[in-house]
Structures are given as C-alpha cells and as structure tokens.
Write a protein that binds this DNA or RNA. Structure first.
Lengths: 214, 214
DNA sequence: TCATTTTTGTTAAATGTTTCACAATCTTCA
DNA sequence: TGAAGATTGTGAAACATTTAACAAAAATGA
C-alpha cells in the first residue's frame, strides 16, 4: 500500500478526514466536493485534494468524492478495519475519561486492560475495562498490543513506560509532560495540555489583529 | 516586544522550553548549552538557537544560556508573569482531571470557575474550584477571562462555545472532536485524543523501519 | 597572557508544506 | 447529443521550517 511517500503533514490529517467522513456517511451524504469537505474540516480544498492524491485518484472530476468509498479507503489506510488493542496505564480522572470515551464505538480501537497502583481500583472495572495491578505490567505479555496510553503522574511516566516496553509495547500516547527517554524503535506521541494552554494564551496575546485559522 | 516575525513553529515550542527551564532551575542548574538543552527536549540544537535568536541574543558565546535569565525571559513572552484566568466548561472526568492538575502551580494560569449542567455537581467545589450552573455562562461577565477550556460532550460543544462567546470569551482549548464554527476573531486550539491515537496507530503500522523522532 | 576549546548567532542550503493555476474530464441538462 | 458547468489531479510557485556550515566571540586553562 502507498506509504513511504505520504508526507507527515498529510498523515496527521487522515484521522480527521476519516472521522468527518464517518459523520457524513451517517447523515446520509453520498457525495462531497473537496471544497465543501474543506469548509467542514476547515482546511483548504487544494490541500485536501493533494492529500488524497498521494493515494491515487479517489475522486471523480466534475463530481467529487463518494463519501462511503473514501471512508472505506481511509479505514484501510488507518488500519481501522482490524481491531487495534491498546492498554491504559494510570486510571485516574484522565484515564477514566479515556475509558468512558471508549474509542471503540467509531474507531476500531479498544482499550483491553487498564493498570493502576491504587489497590481500591485494582480488580474493579471502569466502563467495562478491568483494572490490573501495576506490577503485573512487567510480567504480562503485551506483544499483541499496538500501543499504550500513558496517563500516570509525571514522576512515574518514565518508569511506567519502561515496564510497558519490557512487556512488548512499542508505541505510546503520552499525556504526561515528561519527555520520555526510550529506545529508538519506540514511537511516542505527546499530548501536553499545559503546553497547549500556554500556546493558546501566547497566540491570543500576540495576535490581536493578525488572525490565524488553523 | 518582538512578536510579528516569530514563526508559528517556534511559538509552539516556547511553552516546552519554558517548562523545561523551570525544571532545570529547580534542580539548581544555572547554565546550559543549546546542545544539552536540545537533548533534553529532543529537538535539534540548531533549531533551539534559531528559535531563541528571534528574540535577540539571549546566550553567551562559549558559555551557553543562563537558565534563570532565559526562564524569566520566556515567562514574559508567554505572559506567564501575570495571572491568566480561564474558565472550564464541562466538569466530567476530563474536566476534573484538568481541575486537579491545576495549572497554577508552575504556570501562572488559573481555572477560576467551572460550569456544568449536572445539578449534583453545581454548587460544589472540585479541587477548590466552584462549579456553576451552565445557564449562568451566558449571563456572567467573562471579559477578564483569557480563554475557556471546553470539555463538554461533542454534541454540546458548539452551543457551549457560543454561550461563552456571548459572555466575552475569545479563545478556546477544545477537547471535543467537533470542529467549531465561530466568528473569525475567536481563536480555537484543538486537542483531539481520538485523532492522536489513530495517528499513533498509523505511524506505528507504516514505519516498521523508517523511524521518526518527533 | 595567549592558545585552545566551546558555543553562540546567522547566512545559506536543503527540505517540507501549502497554495496557485489550469488542463483534463466528468456531470448535468436542455 | 452537445454545450455549459463543476471539480479533480497535478506541476510549478510560494512559503515555511529545519539543518548545515562557519565566523565571531567568549570561556578556559596552562
């Protein structure tokens, strides 16, 4: 499947496209032009056509894109046609929010287990997901798990990540502000709320007139 | 203050630099070179020097950067030398996580009020922050509030944002996957966990050999 | 003091991303 | 059927970001 040449920036937008198409299909929209789609996702229509073009000719000239077909295509690209299992490390409020949210509904991604140190949580279920004791993380076999969501306090993030790696994990979605130091074959994505909030404040203060859209 | 010419990409990194410097100062480190700093934040040292150079000469050749001084400087740039008040809309698990987290400790940013529809939450405090009924959002005067954190369910995000705008809000940190349609003078930043998780899965699957670091 | 080392700040090159412009071609409808 | 209109896909231009290369200057240590 086309992959090596897809720009990073394009790849980052695919999940948004996918979810938007799911919504469009759900409300019964069968076709859409790049410009209408663009106004929905708030991205320039040329960028959208360029993005899709990396995967071949997905649309029809003078017509637009078939929403169903495009959605199915992105589903494959994003590996959402097969279930991705993930684990959650740290079942605090943030972890619980993610468990409730549970991706599975629209996305073929399931949190199969959670881990926490708190004995009062261990053994129970949160939104149908079992909470296991943290120390089992090292001994469990997680080789069939795609990634781990890290929602432990900063101070424990590095340690928890290392335990997860020992159990076979290769990818992390890290919600703690800690920059993890891990082997080169481990991929980490950061979601840092403090950074986001400070960046928001920065942009608000530094652009009373020069407006940016994305 | 230098501002118009600072590239977006640089501005996005400033909060990370700032927090990292806070940590370094806290552990008693008084000077640091761009290369050591770079290895901590996992960004190329040239990029770091370039970033700082947009604000003038902040370092000393053959010496590096004075951590305290650099931190103070970034504090001003990021408007963290004066308190930024924000409100939180939606006190579910995610909202509660943010209230607990409460930014204020290291960042001069405070969540001064929360809003929720749930009568069982209204009137109480979460981590010292009062929860107000959602309908008060329209009537409250929020003109001294820098931004709102939106942690309501998707279906209500647009409506809640409009209420906040009516009360004087101009900036949002939107945690719901909804793309808000708002006036041009309102700035919105998205934090979309589903997108992040799908992007993570995409990158894990599409790069068994070609590794990316950031 | 002075040679060596360190490290910045910056110009230029390389790379990556977005936007423009428009031919190609399909759709629509009289 | 054929003309008018819509819309894609793409090569080239414009713009943005990162990386390389290195001169200038300060720090360090004999």
């Amino acid at each position: 499947m086309a992959s090596q040449k897809v720009p990073q920036a394009t790849a980052e937008r695919l999940p948004l496209y996918y979810r938007t198409l799911q919504r469009l299909v759900a409300i019964g929209k069968t076709r859409i032009s790049s410009s209408e789609f663009g106004s929905i996702v708030q991205i320039d229509s040329t960028t959208i056509r360029k993005d899709f073009s990396y995967f071949g000719a997905l649309g029809r000239k003078g017509y637009g894109y078939d929403t169903q077909r495009l959605m199915e295509f992105l589903k494959k690209i994003l590996y959402q046609d097969e279930l991705s299992k993930v684990i959650l490390i740290g079942a605090g409020h943030l972890g619980t929010a993610l468990l409730n949210h549970n991706f599975q509904k629209n996305n073929n991604t399931k949190i199969v287990r959670a881990y926490d140190v708190d004995p009062s949580k261990v053994g129970k279920e949160i939104s149908g997901t079992e909470v296991h004791p943290m120390n089992e993380l090292v001994t469990d076999d997680n080789s069939d798990i795609t990634a781990a969501i890290l929602t432990v306090p900063s101070a424990h993030a590095q340690e928890a990540a290392e335990m997860a790696i020992a159990s076979g994990i290769h990818g992390f979605l890290n919600f703690s502000p800690t920059r993890l130091v891990l082997p080169a074959d481990v991929y980490v994505r950061h979601v840092d709320m403090t950074v986001e909030l400070q960046a928001l404040i920065y942009f608000l203060n530094h652009s009373m007139e020069e407006r940016k859209s994305e």
